[in-house]
Design a protein around this nucleic acid. Structure first.
Length: 460
RNA sequence: GUGGUCGUAGCUCAGCCGGUUAGAGCGUCAGAUUGUGGAUCUGAAGGUCGUGGGUUCGAUCCCCAUCUUCCACCCCA
């Protein structure tokens, strides 16, 4: 058989030990912040029933779902070309027949499913965190992978704005610990809905949000042009101008919106929530910036209230954290009227930002503390005993597998950044001492076992 | 899904107008040095030129397809 070139699917990556050190540092930090705020972990399967996933992320989202072909003969019982009289079904019709499972696209929808399924066993408000990979059949590019980790915190079973505040505090704490300066932008879907109402086309909420989301990128003119293409009339577009051009402090913006939305109940509710949130946040003394931004839209269509997005200040990268409130995500699974709010940290993007900004602490690598050199079968037996003692003390240690030249053994230690090498040869066995070489200074000294171990303990 | 881009040794990259046996640096391995790493020197190994077709007397080079990389759009973490 011809050897095949080893490869992994597009948009996926292998992680070497040095990279894992950074990744674990990120996961551990985020996890410990989540726990400080009283969230508990759950996990859900990588694969879900396709019916759980489809239709939750909009039409675009459905296209990005990885679907799993049914096991066995997935064509059993369906034969689209057997009868030439019948029309050949499109992939939309065919997909559910040959695939009934898919890889999860995010952690929020599986969580909603989880909550409904276990509703009688959970304590509400239910606060959970979840750190697991998700998959999207997207085309890879900067900061975009087909397999990546999300770190979600959500709370369901309460509509309290206290949780919005809590999530923004979590964001602040996480990025402070990472040393990344961020800006947390938020908006409220109810305000966007109110705007759509106010300009007389409530049905074009999505079109409006998608278009104005691009304002920073493409400018006012193109946004208006796009709105026109999406079917908005000139009057509506003109009515939208004050929103698009809105500047100044949060209270300035709120004032503008109050004028515009005075006839929209939904809009007024949104403004009220916004004001409440801002007044709470003002008292929190956060270290990172935050701001209200009407132009923030977010495409995920299950959001109904506050929406949140976080960007790193010093680097061009998509959002590194995002989320919002969803009033009825559990409704589709048969549990209506349960409000939830949550955010998701993009661990892989955070890694990229940390790497580029050089924010990883030096101490995250945990290399072996001591290597026992190998001088042959006799010495090996003796070294093994000392090694066991050292390991009993919890000191990461290893022995070189064969009696290669010392040069080679030391080089191995040097490359693995192992700070100490224990040399136990015939002389040492006789005297009961250990020769310890300090790889940083190059110096070497003889010591008894107890001193040896306490020396390693202090250094490790 | 749309548009563009990249692919030559483990890594970073040369390779002239299409022409003999595809090169360099770094790394790897061995030795100089049989109980002492990082330096130096000597030597060696390592290539389906991403893959598959095509044009040509002849293709790493030109054409087509495909995979992969990176980037923009869409969308998003």
């Amino acid at each position: 058989m011809a050897v095949q070139k080893p490869s992994i699917p597009k948009g996926t990556r292998d992680f070497k030990p040095t990279e894992m050190a950074g990744r674990n540092y990120i996961f551990n930090t985020i996890r410990s912040v989540f726990e400080v705020f009283g969230y508990l972990p759950i996990e859900t399967p990588a694969i879900e029933n396709l019916t759980t996933l489809t239709g939750k992320y909009g039409e675009e989202g459905d296209k990005l779902l990885f679907k799993i072909l049914n096991s066995g003969n997935f064509l059993d019982g369906i034969s689209p070309v057997a009868d030439p009289q019948l029309p050949i079904p499109g992939y939309r019709e065919l997909t559910p027949l040959i695939s009934e499972k898919g890889l999860r696209y995010d952690l929020t929808v599986p969580f909603a499913r989880f909550v409904v399924q276990h509703q009688n066993e959970l304590i509400f408000p239910f606060k959970r965190y979840q750190i697991q990979p998700v998959w999207r059949a997207d085309r890879p590019q900067k900061g975009r992978y087909r397999e990546f980790f999300q770190c979600d915190v959500d709370v369901v079973g309460s509509a309290s704005l206290l949780y919005e505040v809590e999530l923004i505090q979590i964001i602040d704490e996480v990025f402070s610990r990472f040393g990344i300066e961020t800006t947390t932008l938020f908006n409220n879907r109810k305000i966007l809905a109110g705007i759509a109402e106010a300009i007389g086309s409530p049905q074009s909420l999505t079109d409006i949000t998608v278009a104005i989301d691009k304002l920073d990128k493409v400018g006012l003119e193109k946004v208006c042009q796009e709105l026109k293409e999406r079917g908005l009339n000139d009057l509506a577009i003109r009515a939208l101008q004050p929103v698009l051009l809105m500047e100044g402090t949060i209270s300035d913006k709120i004032e503008t919106l109050e004028g515009l939305l005075k006839n929209s109940e939904t809009g007024k509710k949104g403004i009220e929530e916004l004001k409440h949130l801002c007044s709470l946040l003002k008292e929190m003394k956060l270290r990172n910036k935050w701001n209200f931004d009407v132009r923030l839209a977010r495409g995920l269509n299950y959001y109904t209230g506050t929406i949140i997005e976080v960007k790193a200040n010093d680097i061009a990268m998509g959002s590194i954290c995002g989320g919002g409130r969803y009033d009825d995500l559990t409704g589709i699974f048969g549990l209506p009227g349960v409000s939830g709010v949550g955010i998701s940290f993009g661990a892989d993007r955070i890694y990229d930002v940390m790497a580029e900004l050089n924010r990883f602490p030096e101490t995250i690598q945990q290399p072996t503390t001591v290597l026992f050199a190998n001088f042959g079968p006799e010495e090996e037996r003796f070294a093994l005993q000392v090694l066991a003692e050292v390991r009993k003390e919890g000191i990461p240690s290893e022995i070189y597998p064969d009696a290669s030249k010392l040069k080679k053994q030391l080089e191995y230690a040097s490359r693995k950044q192992i700070p100490f090498v224990a040399l136990i040869g015939k002389d040492e066995i006789e005297s009961g001492m250990v020769a310890v070489k300090d790889m940083n200074t190059g110096g070497q000294s003889l010591m008894g076992r107890e001193e040896f171990i306490s020396r390693l303990k202090n250094k490790s």
